[in-house]
Nucleic acid binder design. Structure first.
Lengths: 135, 135
DNA sequence: ATCTATCACGTTATGATATAACATTTCAAA
DNA sequence: TTTGAAATGTTATATCATAACGTGATAGAT
């Protein structure tokens, strides 16, 4: 579980919730968590504001295809992150795509496009859920 | 504008709306379009059902980071598509990422993960919007 | 020390996106 | 011509996200 400094109270709570979760959490799942409740976080906007700050600090990633959020399990990194997202259990594995950075940049350059943000998400079945499907 | 056969009436209307649009459209934008209105498509679910069928047929792509949909501007293809999405004007350029397919597969294989769907979206500024920002 | 600008936060309301549940119609294969 | 699968219609509701506006804490400038 990653460390984080310079966080406000609300941000720390939300980050802790995500750090303890074993899969991406939606804003409303975070809102409904014990930890959030105990600490007085009770409005959706409170959660969304903390999430926005955490994403800005690159401590948390938004998973677009789930409308959910996951704590970054590396040190903050400049390379694009990629996610393997199980469509059955939703457990999500983060990795980086250094090998693709150049290809992406070249593609963008061709279109005179300036890339600010890269989203890579692969959906499918994780090893456990494949095994379970066979049994 | 791509051709499409074997579509139901509703699917054809929705596909036509997307084909004529110069940027991705949300379900509710499609719902609000002249063409949809004229043809009696008046409930969100009608639109979503047509979109689901079109995405299944690979005639339309969902842009996760916009919650919007775009007509595929190639023939249907097996390679992962990638999108360059302007955060200012929302115009979106589709391309393929054949060069990355192997990297993605290798990454997944390492985790014993079976990939079914790949999402690649790059957000930033298109050439026009960069020029406009400078002037 | 206090003014003042900024940032985080609280609260309420609402907007935007998406699906559930169930009834009806269509239409082609048997 | 029956019949069964797929598409559609209709209503209601679930889920995700932000607007608007006010309050309080903090820190640098005077």
């Amino acid at each position: 579980m990653a460390k984080a400094t310079g966080l406000t109270h609300n941000q720390q709570i939300v980050f802790d919730v995500l750090s303890h979760a074993d899969r991406p959490q939606t804003a409303y799942e975070i809102l409904g968590s014990e930890l959030a409740h105990e600490n007085g976080l009770k409005a959706p906007l409170t959660i969304y504001r903390a999430l926005e700050a955490l994403v800005d600090k690159a401590l948390v990633h938004r998973i677009e295809s789930l409308n959910a959020f996951i704590a970054c399990d590396h040190e903050p990194h400049p390379e694009p992150a990629a996610f393997l997202i199980c469509r059955n259990c939703r457990k999500t594995h983060e990795t980086t795509m250094e090998a693709c950075s150049g290809i992406f940049q070249a593609t963008a350059r061709q279109q005179l496009f300036t890339v600010e943000q890269v989203t890579i998400e692969m959906s499918g079945l994780c090893a456990e859920c494949q095994a379970q499907a066979r049994s």
